[in-house]
Design a protein around this nucleic acid. Structure first.
Lengths: 210, 210
DNA sequence: AACAATTTTAAACATACGTTTAAATTAATT
DNA sequence: AATTAATTTAAACGTATGTTTAAAATTGTT
């Protein structure tokens, strides 16, 4: 029993790292199982197929992040009924950084996986995310709408996807960007400081009246 | 002689469409050559390898777009020395839409290719782009810096990368987003209307003082 | 027209992939 | 301890991939 969990977890741990670094289709099951030090066939035994493994990798993070994010938004709305966009985005920082304490580099891995999930695989992961976590997403969208009531909902839809792109793309290249900023501008950054830089950018973009 | 050009062009035309739609690694040479109605081996004969075909597809657009973009920025600075950020970003719209007159759907194809180029293939294409078109990119950065002189250069560095993420991610998933916006908000969008939506968002984000 | 260079073609090559199988091993149950 | 169920394993399967080959066809040159 515990060995089953061990094998499953070893596969998930190796897979999420490789998927985030290289993408889903560029990562073979043989590479995953060799890094995980398990047998090739155990992926199909435990997960059924590669596609289901991809979903399981994403679900493990989403199951942690989505409820935490929803709770953070709900608490914010209780204590601060007219929260600003910056408040709302900032409320997501703690749930995001919590992922770092679960697994080293968890925040960045999660955001990279999210980005690849939205772009690769012709949208069927997009469907998986929106259909399985639609309520959490909707509560977030509703909070955003309430904080900028004058902005049409279609505009909010577009701008939140712009925001997703900003965050996801930035996190995918965070290491390189942090190095460049250190060399060129003498800045010492980490994932959290980068997230703090993103927030005013996206809050301004979503709220712009034009 | 003309048949060589024909075959090369037929390959490039079929490849760019499929690469933009499905991504590089998800598009096989057999699919490309069957759509192009040429022999499978002609890709390796004319381009050497799949990787070089990918670069050729990107280069064909970048060689058109980058000089046009540089010229547009230079003209803007001549005629309007204190151009706003929105002016600068808007100046890129015409060079982008010109790609549509070269090939049907050229603008969308180019931006999707750019997005996939930055996200897929572990940064090889990122290096190719910045090393081959670095001067054009730098003239753009300089123009942005001149238009928001109070913003520290380090902040501009970060925010332009946020902007790159916004554009690249949005364009990579543009088709899906346009479909959703049509279904949920009864909006009829194309690549130009999406570009027009992005500009205020990124201009506001780059200029924000916080 | 004859020859040479270029291009196209069909076939094969070597490799990598996800998946399946059936036996071996381990764990759980009685 | 014996039996059953769950898991791991090595091997093979079938398919798809990018690439190469060598002959055929086409085009350019003299």
């Amino acid at each position: 029993m515990s060995s089953r969990i061990d094998t499953k977890t070893k596969i998930l741990d190796a897979a999420e790292k490789l998927f985030a670094e290289r993408g889903f289709s560029e990562t073979s099951l043989r590479l995953i199982t060799s890094k995980a030090e398990v047998n090739l066939a155990s992926v199909n035994y435990h997960f059924g197929s590669k596609r289901e493994l991809i979903r399981a990798v994403l679900a493990r993070y989403l199951d942690l992040f989505m409820p935490a994010a929803s709770n953070a938004i709900a608490e914010l709305q209780q204590q601060h009924p007219h929260a600003s966009l910056t408040d709302i985005f900032s409320a997501l920082v703690s749930p995001l950084l919590t992922l770092n304490s679960i697994r080293a580099g968890g925040t960045r891995t999660f955001l990279q996986l999210l980005g690849r999930g939205y772009i690769e695989s012709q949208g069927h992961l997009r469907w998986f995310i929106t259909s399985h976590y639609g309520e959490h997403l909707q509560s977030f969208v509703t909070a955003v709408q309430a904080s900028v009531p004058t902005i049409p909902r279609a505009d909010i839809f577009w701008r939140l996807h712009f925001t997703l792109g900003t965050v996801v793309f930035t996190m995918a290249s965070a290491d390189a960007l942090i190095d460049i900023a250190a060399a060129d501008f003498d800045e010492k950054n980490n994932i959290e400081t980068v997230i703090r830089k993103v927030i005013p950018y996206i809050a301004s973009g979503v709220a712009v009246s034009a």
